[in-house]
Write a protein that binds this DNA or RNA. Sequence first.
DNA 1: GTTTAGGATTCG
Length: 652
Amino acid sequence: MFFGKSVRGLSTESMSLAPTTNYIYTPLNQLKGGTVVNVYGVVKFFKPPYLSKGTDYCSVVTIVDQTNVKLTCLLFSRSYEALPIIYKIGDIVRFHRLKIQVYKNEPQGINSSGFASLTFEGTLGTPVIPRTSSKCFNFTAQDHKMVEALRVWASTHISPSSTLVQLCDVQPMQYYDLTCQLLGKAEVDGTSFLLKVWDGTRTPFPSWRVLIQDLVLEGDLSHIQRLQNLTIDILVYDNHIQVAKSLKVGSFLRIYSLHTKLQSVNSETQTSLLRLEFHLHGGTSYGRGIRVLPENNSDVDQLKKALESADLTAIQPSDDQLENEENFPTLSSSGSGSVSLYEVERCQQLSATILTDHQYLEKTPLCAILKQKAPQQYRIRAKLRSYKPKRLFQSVKLHCPKCHSLQEVPYENDLETILQDAATKTPNSKLQNTSLYDSKVWTSKDQRKRKVAIHFVKNSGILPLSSECLILIEGGMLSELSKLSSKFHSVIPVQSGPEDLELLSLEAPFLIQGNVYHYGCKQCSSLKPIQNLSSLVDEGLWVPSAVAEALGVVPLQYVFVMTFTLDDGTGVLEAYLMDYDKFFQIRASEVLTDDNLQRSLDMIMNMFCPPGIKIDTYPWLECFIKSYNVTSGVEQQICYQIFDTTVAEDLI
DNA sequence: GTTTAGGATTCG
């Protein structure tokens, strides 16, 4: 009953002039063997088109629809382009004239005469644009609805692909789908082919460098050299070699099910080095393969942005490093992208951490330290067997320098509740427009009709530039505080008190500057009136410690609190680290709101304690530790804390 | 006109 379209012998679909054309789509739970149907579905699995052992290209596609029934389809075509243009799991496809047969007692789809497909992006809210190589095809309001309905269903029933990652997020011994740009390619030998690619981010370990003959690399060598370890080497094998050979340098690719492996490699100096290997193994299991992405692909847009903003300055070697590089030979072949592998050599031969003082001290083995009484100070050399907590946000705490208490950083949700409660109070108009500040009041557009008052603090009676201006805000929500703090120098959340504006609460930050939320100690602070800020107006700098003092706040300091399990082969010792910024050279106050700092910290911890390999290959850490006694009840315990130690600067 | 592959990681 679906053959009406091919009366003139057209195998492609034609734009129908007849108003009655109406395709019927069979839900996937109603398929019968021996029929030819039209179906819609969300792609749950796919193999990008590859050359079969027969005459055709092949693509295997598994789809699912709202009936939650899956259907695996075998699609063959003499032409690559005629197969569905699927880029990722979650894409939506429409198949016309799909034959249903039974294989292993299950329905299976296979293309039949006149087969045609459309593919759509599966993301909610993106434009519904069909991808197809068909010159003519039927596309109606019904199709639009089908796609939208599947998108909505998929958004709650299909988890987005977890294998799509950037290089900065790859871990060893995993399989990933990588979106990247091809920078160079080279024949290696008969059994493998090399692709040099990048995505604008840096892997947690330097990429391996595959040895190739001089002059066989196709690509801009100087560009590749300039990018240094922003590029990775991928070896592809067997059936992928032909595809890789045909790729154009500069094109954008998605490489499916790329395997990462961490290897320790022996250098000439007999120390082991860590390298991240990338392999695209032979075969098509798990959809292994390569697909060229078109320029107009939305993921390519994102990739281009990442490439443009790639931090080239961060990878320029300093003079210091260049000098050292001569002492640390690289593994790369002559002539093909000689890359600085300085970092890893540095941390494995010397130490990934260094002392900032006490260099005169002799090293003590851990077994000796464990036998001695506290308090003492030691210089040690050990490896980081493990550390706690694993999650970064759990390691950041607030520390009071006065009462030494440690507190959790308030959660966003709790903060929002406090702000919402405060917003129920109406700003007192008598406290507005004083000699200290000019005030403006808004009413929110939502149903709550919330009153928001902003008080702009003046300097000598004049309003400063917003980038230098301190504002006090009443009734603001978290998102508003965040927006205002990016525009204004400083933001203080306040409320109307009986006689003056007062700080909202020490549950909330007493000061926000940019990304940093400053909190005060509830035990140690004794709040003073807001008018006290007038003593700071002339300075106009709004230094957090000065603001805190004027308002009677004892400010809390952001710290990393972590436990390191250290092992030097003679013994194992738990030492804790409390660090504001010295050890990691990353400010604990900024790390929770800065993705780049979080990545840096992850990289450091990955370098100290690389996942998936034996402790022998971990780098050494040189640390200064203090022992001290802790009494709990009648029991005495010796604890250890890391001091005066920092991550080696050339590792950051 | 038939075969290809029939999802289910390499072992380099």
